[in-house]
Design a protein around this nucleic acid. Structure first.
Lengths: 343, 343
DNA sequence: TTGTGAATTACAATCGATTGCAATCTATTT
DNA sequence: AAATAGATTGCAATCGATTGTAATTCACAA
């Protein structure tokens, strides 16, 4: 395990009788270096097994070629799809991804942000933890003008405009609810997570919009806050069974919850969709496995990741601070058996 | 957007009338520095908003505090669970994760490895792409003695012993098959991915072991190679329908495949498990959503990630090359409705 | 042959933190 | 008071690559 010292540009310089600066430029095909010289340099570098020392380069250029990504959970179909898209774009543009998860906790998120800051990430892609009340913990990045793109779980900052990639959750929530109403549902239970999170408040707003539009009142008993994880269905259904007047539909703010609700309803002998229709949100694969298949809101994970990364890279390549903007991606209601009351 | 120059240890030194080296040591609570001085240094550093320059530190120490992770797909329930575990352990030990996916292609994997090498990852966690025939592309890491831990998808290297974290796939494959045979199945179709991958060859071996043990012969028609993705079920069932003598069970090497097989069998009007029993592998959540619920092999993703990261960190902290070893994690057959022919 | 501008290449400072060793200081002993 | 060991702190080199500016080279025109 001989720790053979690294080959540096100085070694190449000595070998070729050139100066280190010429080597440095040559390796990057700098126009000031003669083509022939560039060729020789690269050839020798290869044959000597040269490997750039990123630390030195980063130190000098004060750049890391790294994009920090922080999101609530790595182990979520949707979120890992997003990352997958980001990774693709980042790799294509010569950036690396430094990834960490907040586990839905602002505290952990703060730590992560500090870490990203300390590792001098050139940009940050962030999806906020559920309990993040504001963007105060981003001061570090904002003040320094380090490019930042929020995706999916976003929030406004009073002083800084930030760029974000989202879907129109309100309209989407409306669409789902509207569809259920069209199917004849009148008591629609809505299940959402922590209402600090934009995605859930907005979907909830959309739900209310649809109810109002159709002349229904919003019944607080029909709004349940839940963690939307795998245990979700059991909790919701238990609650439904305890209700005097049962709902005739459930609109859950994510597919995991909706799917487990269907499973539990069936266990409880309640017919889906006849007695209770169910709709979810995200259109992850699991929605096509449950029976009846789940009506849900299609939500482009991989795409969202790609768009967010593309925007960030664009911002990083600009010297001027880029005008903040919000990209709203298309959503699409996917109607399947779980909500079809008619017919 | 004033690019206020960073605060460095030189600034702190000037402020306190000390030398930079003392500041450097003080910040790390070096024992040679008086406690009182350490306190003053840290206090001043804080108040001045000092932030370590990792590049400089890394350059000097020739360390990155970064762990590289390469795996086939980020958007896989199982694999993102693994990462989740790794992230937890890494964060706890002050390491960052540099993550990239090979998309099941050795070519991309090679590029990733080069990247990890260039970013001077202190260690590497790797799960091989399906078409990786050997570990040749790891020479870079192996030769340099950079700690490496393979997880899940592993392979042997003729010259270097490598550390790995796996389950006993052969035994697990045996267990699943044995269970199906016990349920009275006699023609068990096995679906696996590319047979270059240890996980699939071994599960296949286990399948054969069980058949042999029970006096059945291995029928090549009953072994299907498939990509095991969401389209898997449709392909398999089509194939089954075209067979003269249909199988009475399907043992798929992952849950996605098994679950989609169940869905398609039902669509085709074939009863599960009565006509065809089904078993999967991984025990991801989706296995409890399908109806009947899927019998599957429990496979500890998060745990595996934690163990792999822990081992790697242990290796990195050791000066001596650590003896390579293989950690075999427990697996457990989870029996559910999809395979219960009796009763 | 000499001069000129363009094309190439070299010099030397710089990016911050770390570290072996030297220097200084402190407290204790004689 | 001087000597000495131990506790603290400072010096200066170093980790490699980058870059503004200076120096050199070259081709070609005068």
């Amino acid at each position: 395990m001989s720790v053979n010292r690294e080959v540096t540009i100085y070694d190449i310089a000595r070998e070729l009788g050139l100066s280190p600066s010429t080597i440095s430029r040559g390796l990057r095909s700098h126009p000031a270096i003669k083509d022939e010289t560039v060729r020789r340099i690269k050839e020798t570098a290869d044959s000597m097994g040269y490997q750039q020392n990123t630390f030195a380069s980063n130190l000098r250029r004060n750049r890391s070629n790294t994009i920090g990504v922080i999101l609530p959970r790595l182990s979520s179909s949707f979120q890992s799809a997003v990352i997958s898209g980001m990774e693709e774009v980042a790799a294509k543009n010569g950036y690396h991804l430094l990834i960490s998860q907040s586990g839905e906790s602002v505290e952990k998120e703060k730590v992560n942000i500090k870490t990203m800051y300390d590792s001098r990430a050139d940009g940050l892609l962030l999806s906020l933890a559920a309990d993040a009340e504001n963007l105060d913990h981003l001061e570090l990045f904002l003040k320094k003008g380090i490019p930042l793109v929020l995706f999916d779980r976003t929030k406004e900052h009073p002083d800084y405009e930030s760029t974000s990639v989202v879907i129109d959750n309100r309209k989407a929530g409306y669409d789902v609810t509207h569809h259920l109403i069209e199917q004849g549902c009148e008591r629609i239970l809505h299940v959402c997570d922590n209402l600090l999170s934009n995605v859930y408040t907005e979907r909830y707003d959309g739900y209310k919009d649809a109810l109002n539009e159709h002349g229904f009142t919003v019944d607080p008993d029909l709004v349940v806050i839940d963690t939307l994880d795998e245990g979700s269905g059991a909790r919701i259904v238990k609650r439904i069974q305890a209700m005097e007047r049962r709902p005739d539909a459930v609109f859950a703010a994510n597919d995991i919850s909706a799917v487990t609700v269907i499973c539990e309803l069936k266990k409880a002998g309640i017919m889906v969709p006849r007695e209770i229709a169910v709709a979810g949100f995200n259109n992850v694969h699991i929605s096509r496995v449950v029976e009846p298949e789940l009506t849900t809101m299609h939500y482009p994970g991989v795409e969202m990741g790609k768009v967010a990364a593309t925007m960030l890279i664009e911002m990083m390549n600009q010297d001027q601070p880029v005008v903040a903007r919000t990209i709203v991606m298309e959503h699409e209601l996917v109607i399947r058996g779980s909500s079809l009351k008619k017919r």
